[in-house]
Simulated scan of single mutants.
Amino acid sequence: MNASPYIRPHRVRPRRQQGIALLSIMLILTLMTLIVAEVTFAYRNQLRRTTGRHQLEQARWYALSAEELAVRVLKQSFDDDDGVIHLGQYWATEGMVFPVEDGTIAGEILDAQGCFNLNAMNVSDNTDGSTPLEVDIFAYLLEELEISASEAMSISWATRDWVYNGEDYTQYGDDHYMSRPVPHLAGQTAMRDISEWRAVAGVSQGIALRVMPYLCATPSNRLQVNVNTIPADQPELLSALYEGDLPIDQARRALEQRPANGWDTVDEFLNSSLLANYNASNMRSLVTVNSSYFELRANSEFAGTRTGLNSLLRRNDDNQLSVVRRKFGAFL
Rank of each mutant, 00 (worst) to 15 (best):
I25S: 14
G202K: 01
G95L: 03
E134C: 02
D245A: 15
W157Q: 13
G308K: 00
R252S: 14
G129W: 01
L241P: 09
F331L: 09
E101D: 15
Q17E: 12
I155W: 01
Y140E: 12
D175E: 14
A152K: 07
D193K: 08
T131A: 09
V39K: 05
C216Q: 01
R53V: 09
E236P: 05
S179L: 13
D125S: 12
G103C: 10
L118F: 02
L286K: 01
S322N: 14
R53H: 13
L309G: 02
L142Y: 02
Y242H: 08
R253M: 08
A112D: 13
V71R: 05
S204P: 09
N126S: 09
S220N: 08
A120C: 02
S179M: 12
N122T: 05
A92N: 12
I109Y: 00
R15P: 03
V289E: 00
D175Y: 08
Q171S: 11
G166E: 07
A63P: 07
Y6T: 13
N299L: 11
T265E: 12
M32N: 08
S291A: 15
E67L: 12
N119W: 00
I109V: 13
Y90C: 00
S124T: 14
A158Y: 01
P231S: 04
S195M: 08
R326W: 02
S154C: 07
P259G: 01
C115Y: 00
R284Q: 15
L31K: 01
K327D: 13
M121Q: 08
V227A: 12
S156C: 06
S239A: 15
S292T: 14
N271F: 06
L296D: 01
I155E: 03
Y177T: 07
D174L: 10
G107K: 06
T127A: 15
P235D: 07
H86P: 08
I137N: 08
A59V: 03
G103H: 06
A66G: 14
N290Y: 09
E143T: 14
Q224L: 11
F294C: 13
A70F: 07
R160K: 11
S24H: 08
V211C: 01
S273I: 05
Y293Q: 06
A70Y: 05
Y278A: 01
A201C: 03
Y177A: 12
V203H: 05
M283L: 15
M32G: 15
D264T: 15
E167F: 10
N319Q: 11
A120H: 01
G114Q: 06
L56F: 11
N319R: 09
N261W: 04
T40N: 11
L185H: 11
D82K: 10
P213T: 00
I147E: 05
G107W: 03
M178W: 12
G304Q: 02
A152P: 11
Y242K: 04
N45W: 09
S273L: 07
W197N: 04
Y172R: 07
A106R: 11
L185W: 10
A59L: 00
L215M: 10
E196F: 05
S179W: 06
E101M: 02
L47F: 11
A92I: 03
R8L: 08
Y6D: 11
L34W: 02
A158M: 03
R297Y: 03
